[in-house]
Design a protein around this nucleic acid. Structure first.
Lengths: 205, 205, 205, 205
DNA sequence: GATGAATGAGGGTTCATTCAT
DNA sequence: TATGAATGAACCCTCATTCAT
């Protein structure tokens, strides 16, 4: 075994560990409200050690944000583009709800950044917008082909984002209203089914 | 004119002004990330003067939260209860989207609090849950009467919340994707129409 | 009745009331540690009203100190000077212990000022020293006359002050060690008797 | 030389240095009146550095108090218990007066705490009381054995405390009355002799 | 004479970061 | 690479006092 590889790997793992701790802290308290001490605590290291691995809090924030965007894009890379609306949307919604339920911190940190006006996210938005516009075009095609009713293709996408991200952002509220314990798992399948049905039926020609 | 009334009014206005400044700051930075200095700056007063009017940052936060909950409840008091699903839902959605678009800070602060686990909101939730359960019962009635399709009445409500609040929470993203300027007004009527249609059609029996 | 007299009297009473509140607060927290808010609270008035009646915290402190010195001097004015040591000392000790037990705050505030180096008491000390030296001379006379043993007349006075003031300064400790409740009265007569006996026997030729 | 030892030692010394500065400040101004800025100034460090070494002002106060209690107990550990009253008392008084004269700040801080009702000292008092009661029993034995006159054993102890602590608490007054400069040393031997004589003679059967 | 509002200075404490080793 | 020590800026808040009526 090459010990240098092990070391590098270990360091990489620690970096990932730090990033996850940071995402959790940023999700809960935002950039300003997050403290490097809290991040260090979550990561189980000292504050000094944390600062040895990062350049600054803002930099760690940016990194974490980039990481989330990366996951996001990756997540929808694998969906076949030539499916009809029904298959595509149910696929997309299911996957996104699954991610929201299992990675709420990522979604919350992302939303938090947008709520602040997204000053550190704007660099990613150009690409994001391009693919959103492409998706809009495809939706228009569906409309033209009579596969779905007349609909605003941009607002439709926003609405789907709203529906799927809600179960990450507002999970505590959802749990409380359902009478679930704070750590109880949400019924991913049921939620995905309800949302999918709402959207698909809502789009029927 | 009675000067005493003027004074009291002025004070009341200042208090409201402070609360609005606080909501804006809390919406952007959360409880921890908000600084009393920033709130004072937004309100156009000195930090000392701010602290003359409030007991503590946490207290101001709680007050602001209570205020938002108050508005919220008031907002839906006036909706006639005996309307059918179509009228009721379009009424409700329209009103809520209007509020979201015109008072995004209130919605964001609220969401922020929930993302943190809602430690300071829990006191309000008991009442909130009761009315949510009542609404669920009404929805079940609509289902029984065949007015809408079979649907989970709790998830339906969550979905409507998601759709309506999204245009407050994610307004910067929405604007960017639509190619609008940062301060451009969102087309309230169109958004309400699209969301209403999605929901009403999505619920057709 | 002359209402103007009543008013003046009322004001005078309030001033006394404030002074007593101040002494209590200064006794417990010293000049720096005392807050005008706390003094106002003890006096049952608002802070603004307090500041209407005083010039400054330091001034109130000085006034209170002067008042205590005045009481002090008055207290020993009435003791006949031509008594022998036995009568004089028992008289003096009894009176001083009585004052200490019934007015601990005054004694504590005084002691507090001395512990700080007595910066605001020095003006009174010239007179104080003169009478202490006079008393020392009288004690020397008693020694010369063979009424008491050879003793340092200054240290004797310090020792008597120590013994008598202790029951004001350290009352909480005394009470605790005796197993008394925090508000239980100290047995003035017994304490005076013990101290007197210690001193008188301790001075026997 | 081991540099690690040096460092640890240095740190320990700084901690001691801070504690001494704190005792001096607390002695003069009490807990409320003492400022961390003033303590830092006395210790010759910045306020931030001070706060790096302490948890809070209150904690530093408690620590300092504990330290004093520790010294106190240590101070009287070495006195042989089987001495007769004369030897024991002269030993005890001499030692306590010596401490009072050389460590007035410690005694003053202690007294200050008691004057405030000893809220942070009460934990130590249980043990203190036990040993005071034991000492009282020994005094009773002396009385029974006819070695000293009938005396209240608790009040006797209070009186000795009063006499010995006075030269710490009221040193400025003592100095002024004796015509000494503010920093002039007190004549430890003479004071101890006078107090010892007063007590021993005052207890003669 | 009396009082709610206002304020500059300072209170104790935490912050993200850098230093020194 | 790693870490305890250190630090200037900023944090929330209270202070004694003055203002304005």
């Amino acid at each position: 075994m090459n010990p240098r590889v092990d070391l590098a790997q270990k360091r990489g793992e620690l970096r990932d560990h730090i990033r996850d701790a940071a995402i959790a802290e940023f999700a809960e308290n935002g950039l300003r409200g997050a403290s490097t001490q809290a991040i260090a605590d979550r990561a189980g290291i000292t504050k000094t050690k944390l600062h040895y691995y990062i350049d600054s809090k803002e930099d760690l924030y940016q990194q974490s944000l980039d990481h989330i965007v990366g996951i996001w894009e990756e997540l929808f890379d694998g969906i076949p583009l030539d499916l009809g609306p029904e298959a595509f949307l149910s696929f997309y919604i299911t996957r996104k709800i699954s991610f929201s339920i299992h990675h709420p911190a990522e979604v919350r940190m992302f939303a938090n950044e947008i709520m602040r006006g997204a000053p550190m996210l704007r660099s990613h938005w150009a690409g994001s917008r391009a693919s959103t516009l492409r998706a809009a075009a495809r939706i228009e095609d569906w409309v033209s082909a009579g596969l779905i009713r007349q609909v605003d293709p941009m607002l439709l996408q926003f609405n789907i984002w709203a529906l799927t991200e809600h179960y990450a952002l507002m999970a505590p509220e959802v749990r409380y209203m359902l009478g679930l314990a704070e750590d109880a798992p949400l019924d991913e399948a049921k939620i995905a089914a309800e949302v999918t049905m709402l959207v698909l039926r809502g789009l029927k020609p």
